[in-house]
Simulated assay, not measured.
Amino acid sequence: MQATTNNRNYLIDLLRFLSASWVALFHFNAGIPPADNWYRAFCGLGYLGVPVFFIISGYCICIAQQHAKTPRSFIIRRFFRIFPPYWFSILLVCACALAIKLITGTNSAASLPNSFGRVMAAVLLYTAPLSSEHTINWVYWTLPYELFFYFLVFLAMAISKQVSAFLLLVLALAAIWVPYQATGFLFFFNELPAFLLGYALYLVLHKEGNIYAALGLLLSAAAGVYLKHVEFAYHITYFATIALIAVNARFPLKNNFFSRLGDYSYSVYLIHVPLGIYLLGFVKRYQAVQNTTVLNILADFTLLTVVVVCAKVMFMRVEAPSIKLGRKYSA
């Protein structure tokens, strides 16, 4: 049984939104003094939303590959899915930095590029961890991982769509042995197993291609994520994510309010830092907010609500038209 209705997987949508929101709560509380309470402990684990994103991305890219008629159409759609919203979010970062500069007289938001080379590095996503060039938004570091995974799938399709699982299996095995790379061309091996875990999971659940190659890829990717991330919380997150997706393949989640918010998850991810921290983060500097759990929760979910509303507008005005252009130019 497919975990979709009208080509939508509502669990994936739900996980995307919850992960983006968890990352946002993590960042909302990252810049204030720590507090010993259950809520701050929960927010402190929000970084685990990133590996959930990576697994979901691998799962969804496998779906996109199955439906792509050519490698060219695949990569064009991926380009329009990532870059126009990313470029818009850069403009938003600059706008927030300018607003803070005008209000306070100083730029305490982001260190913006101050040379042509740094500007082009930001525009082309030639930033950390691909290079040593720092990012102007705390979440941008994950995007080069996304792009490299898209590129690897594109290469596998260009060589042979039928043997792509075997080629990715070789890369999964290589990722086990390649040591951690802080920056540089081989950086993508750090998180490649997480993407491949989601990718292989789709192949196994939906019996696409050679089942033995898919199982080998799944096991290799699982070994990779276990060895790359020794923290127990990561292991639990990976296991829970693939378990939920596997169960959902048999008992699909129905459409609901929060799954419908999944459309806005990429925008929430991109703009929660400039809006919720650079521009509006002053609300978290009050001692009463920091030291009172109820006020802390109220402040965070008010910020999150503002971000989600803005993300909806961004999806309608930027993401959706960009996706439409990708379909047009890939046809």
Rank of each mutant, 00 (worst) to 15 (best):
F88A: 15
P51F: 04
R81M: 00
F88K: 14
V52P: 01
I61N: 04
T70S: 15
L91G: 05
S73K: 07
P113R: 08
A99Q: 00
S111E: 13
W87G: 07
L92Y: 08
V50L: 07
R78F: 02
F88R: 10
A97I: 04
F54Q: 12
T104E: 15
S115G: 03
V50A: 05
F53W: 04
F83R: 10
L92F: 02
S115L: 06
S111R: 12
L91C: 06
F116S: 13
R72L: 11
A99S: 09
A109D: 07
S89Q: 05
F88M: 14
S111F: 03
R81T: 06
I56R: 08
I76A: 04
G58D: 13
I103A: 09
I56K: 11
F53T: 03
R77M: 12
I82F: 01
N114S: 12
I75S: 09
V52A: 12
I75M: 03
A68Y: 02
P113F: 00
F79C: 11
I61T: 10
K101C: 07
P71E: 14
R81C: 02
S89V: 12
W87Q: 10
A99F: 12
T70F: 00
I103R: 14
C62M: 13
I55P: 06
Q65N: 08
G49Q: 11
R81I: 04
C94H: 01
L92C: 03
I76W: 03
I63M: 10
N107L: 15
Y86T: 13
R72A: 08
V93Q: 09
C60V: 15
R77Y: 01
W87C: 06
C62N: 12
F74P: 01
S111L: 13
I100C: 07
A64F: 02
H67K: 14
A97K: 08
L112A: 08
R81N: 06
I63W: 02
Q65M: 09
R72Q: 00
A95S: 09
C60T: 14
A110C: 02
F54L: 15
T106A: 14
I55M: 10
F116D: 00
K101M: 11
A99K: 04
R77I: 08
I56H: 05
P71A: 07
I76S: 06
I76N: 01
F54W: 12
Y86V: 03
L112W: 09
P85Y: 08
R81E: 11
I61V: 12
Q65G: 03
N107P: 01
N107F: 14
P84C: 07
G58I: 11
T70V: 05
S115N: 09
Q66I: 02
H67V: 06
F88S: 05
Q66D: 13
S73T: 13
F88E: 14
Y86F: 12
G105D: 15
P84Y: 02
L112C: 11
I61H: 00
